Amino acid sequence: MSETSAPPVTGPLCTRATLAAELRALGVSRGEILLVHSSLSSLGWVCGGAEAVVRALLDALGEDGTLVVPTQSGDNSDPAEWTDPPVPQEWWPDIRAWLPAYDPRTTRTRGVGVIPETVRTWPGAVRSAHPQTSFAAIGPRAAELMDGHALDCRLGERSPLAHLERAGARVLLLGAGFASCTAFHLAEYRGPAPLVENSFAVLTGGGRRWMTVREPAISEDRFADLGADFEKERPVVRGSVGAATARVFALPEAVAYAETWLPRHRPRPA
């Protein structure tokens, strides 16, 4: 009887120490604020998995640095908009009535990878209040950066992105592309955009509530093209961490560049 062999292990071998050293060589500095978009699988074989990556990031940032990650949970949304997969229309009322409300302590991330989920559950981590587009942070400035995330402002002026901009944070794309760069959405909020209805389950003083708000539509359409032009024209440090391509750049500069790029290359109706 033949046995199906496991696929061969692919490297390089990454450890907490090697990752921290490569992050420092890339320019990650002690004491800074760093928004990280990541792909664990892009790094190679990581001894310790996502926990080792988080520890390496914290090592590079030091005790005075603050690590921030997106901890999105887009499945807390109107089932009428679900396409992956869609659900029968006759289920919609029950889903709206019983979908668990967002709780920053327990609601799991979706679609952002295992590293943000590890940060979310890290001792001392602080998570912002939006039920779909939250962020989580570890470090001395975590609470102030996560504060005041409005329910009708996914990624705009009353979200952690605006706090990060004012604080002069930098972005690390760790095996992730510019299509994942949430900072570009802050520029979207500053241009004309159609308003859309957005629904989710939240916890209030009176208990669970299904809420609908109106806010600007957002889209990652052409973010990869935006990032490619930004990298050509503005300072972006590019290097390797493990097997991953990594990029580091200033968040305020990325937002400012997107504010001028998006109206020219991706016009949207008011």
Rank of each mutant, 00 (worst) to 15 (best):
A80H: 07
P194W: 03
L26H: 08
A101S: 12
S219L: 11
M211E: 13
L35W: 00
A270T: 10
P86L: 12
P252A: 10
W210R: 03
H37Y: 02
T118N: 05
N198C: 11
L173K: 07
R234G: 06
S29R: 15
P86H: 14
N76H: 10
Q89L: 14
K232I: 10
L161E: 06
G74E: 12
P79E: 04
I138D: 03
V112E: 02
R170S: 11
L174W: 02
A143I: 11
G113R: 01
P85Q: 12
I138V: 14
L172W: 04
K232E: 14
D229G: 14
L35G: 00
E197H: 15
T71S: 02
V36S: 06
E32S: 04
C47M: 03
P235H: 09
T10W: 10
A176L: 09
M211P: 03
P160D: 00
L26A: 08
C181E: 07
A169S: 08
R120G: 12
V36P: 01
V69E: 01
P86R: 11
T118D: 02
R16P: 08
R247S: 08
L155G: 00
E144R: 08
I138R: 08
A169H: 00
A217M: 04
T106Q: 06
A6F: 07
L164T: 10
R96D: 00
A52L: 06
R141I: 10
A201P: 05
F230T: 06
H37T: 08
G148F: 01
S39T: 14
L151R: 04
G242A: 03
